[in-house]
Design a binder for these strands. Sequence first.
DNA 1: TCGTGTGAAAATATTCACAGCC
DNA 2: GGCTGTGAATATTTTCACACGA
Lengths: 222, 222
Amino acid sequence: MKTPPEKIPQAAIQRLATYLQVLEAMDKDGIDKISSEPLAKACEIQPSQVRKDLAYFGEFGTRGVGYYVPLLIERIKSCLNVNREWRAALVGVGNMGRALLNYQEFRRHGFTIVSAFDCDPFKIGEKVYGLEVFCTKTLAEKVPELGIEIGIITVPPERAQRAATQLVNAGIKGILNYSAARISVPENVHVQYVNFFHQIYTLTFNISNNVPSKASKASKKY
Amino acid sequence: MKTPPEKIPQAAIQRLATYLQVLEAMDKDGIDKISSEPLAKACEIQPSQVRKDLAYFGEFGTRGVGYYVPLLIERIKSCLNVNREWRAALVGVGNMGRALLNYQEFRRHGFTIVSAFDCDPFKIGEKVYGLEVFCTKTLAEKVPELGIEIGIITVPPERAQRAATQLVNAGIKGILNYSAARISVPENVHVQYVNFFHQIYTLTFNISNNVPSKASKASKKY
DNA sequence: TCGTGTGAAAATATTCACAGCC
DNA sequence: GGCTGTGAATATTTTCACACGA
């Protein structure tokens, strides 16, 4: 795998996540090789887009044949650096926090929430889905101790910045922010915002303006 | 509001959702006018991007002054068509389905899940967060009866296509698909995919490749 | 004077078209 | 022969820079 020499569009990264989802479904169905055309059709994009996205990272296919599914899955995982475990700390054990703690897919994709934190004394010590809730003040010791690299923020918006600062001070490398607030962090810490209304509003906008969709009526969808 | 004569980038729609979040936080803090610069800084983009995005839809600001926050909120809601209620049906009462049924923010943003469906006889009839679970076979009668326009798919991937087809047959206009499977629908039905790994993989990629972030250290963040 | 709204310019991203290789 | 990988062409999106109006 060539380490990205050129700049790679963030949109391409997101498409890799989609390819992975589709390829894993195909792999489960026993499909062992695929060319860019059907893969693109499943994702509702152009075949050249698929080839270009993959070519950003290296030569994963075989000319005249296509891509070997299990190998391509491994290659894409390697590009995204998700062929290893990532350990995360969750801050904010409310409804959203509990839902994420109970979301089994994270772990199945190498993304393990190893510890939960809250500042509410009534929640501290409680067991949630097998995980003890710790005081957020203990983040600074727990993060290095447990090898945690990612912080997940699920606190109410007004407490998001404090949670972010505590995670940063504890030495976190990146933050997934599920709260409805913007946060500021030093430039060596990466943040991704998760806004549940992005897709909803895109949908209501598209319905209302009758934006032409590119959906196909393929027989079996991946 | 001018009805979009030009084509509007989908990315612009998503940014509108972000502006809305930031503006609502500012409104709560009693800030009543804002110019493109601080709004852009809060969203970590360029001021010209904010102005361009808003100008796609009309002239919402006052030259030399800026934007009046409460008015801008209403205008943006109107652009996205979320200044009214949208009624949704949820299909698949598993962990994910229950979490969404219990997510209060949806309702607070005019997005009401009015009915839940499942094909499991053990779940049908059960009450989940005050909502009775119906058999998916009753979708065709319930959707028109309850004025439902949007379907939410939270079934396991292998049942996603069937859920989609049932929703389409019931006369749904759009689908939010939280399952890890692609679906096909007629071209008059809109689909938005929600993939929890998009942001996670973007984060692991950015951390691993040390992509420069554009985070700022502003005093109060919105 | 200040900040919006907007054409024009620059930067990015996507698609095309075909050389290269299995 | 068929499909990838890729430079070149196109399309789209973002940024600039300034005219315009409060």
